[in-house]
Amino acid sequence: MGSRSSLMLQDEEIAIIQEETGFTPNQIERLYSRFASLDKGDNGTLSRDDFLRIPELAINPLGDRIVQAFFGDEERINFRHFMRVLSTFRPVKKNRDNKLNNRREKLRFAFKLYDLDENEKITREELLEILHMMVGANISNEQLASIADRTIMEADKDGDQCISFEEFCNILERTDVEEKMSIRFLH
């Protein structure tokens, strides 16, 4: 698989992706082979189905949010798109500033997980939904509602009963979220 996929990947394409995302050529080739192995139809693009065939993803409670994060409005994504999304999760390195994988971008990505309707606000309903996905029926609706209320209350500074992106960043200020949202891509 590896040799075939690296043949299919043109050098100039690698260069472009490298420029855009900051991945090394090795990483790009490795990820390309992963991309190709996910691409069951061999048509150079991935569909939502291709993602959901990954068993771990299928049972992941946030599975469809993840897919949604990848696809946005599109039906299929190509390799460049795939790499652009993944590059958000490159580890943050000092001195090597990249506009795609800095802390704020990572936080933006996390924020989008909650903010489904993309109105730049996490509403109480959106939060409850995420909570529901995460805990299943292990917690009663009343409790969940009270948790959501509390959470909003904690984070909400301007009193609009929603968490804006700025409030989101503020509350996560002292956490190591950028470490958590990093993947050690193989060289």
Partner: peptide, 14 residues
Amino acid sequence: VVETFMAGMEEIAG
């Protein structure tokens, strides 16, 4: 959320 999400992401990145 982030942990769960990243578990899925790592899976996608293989």
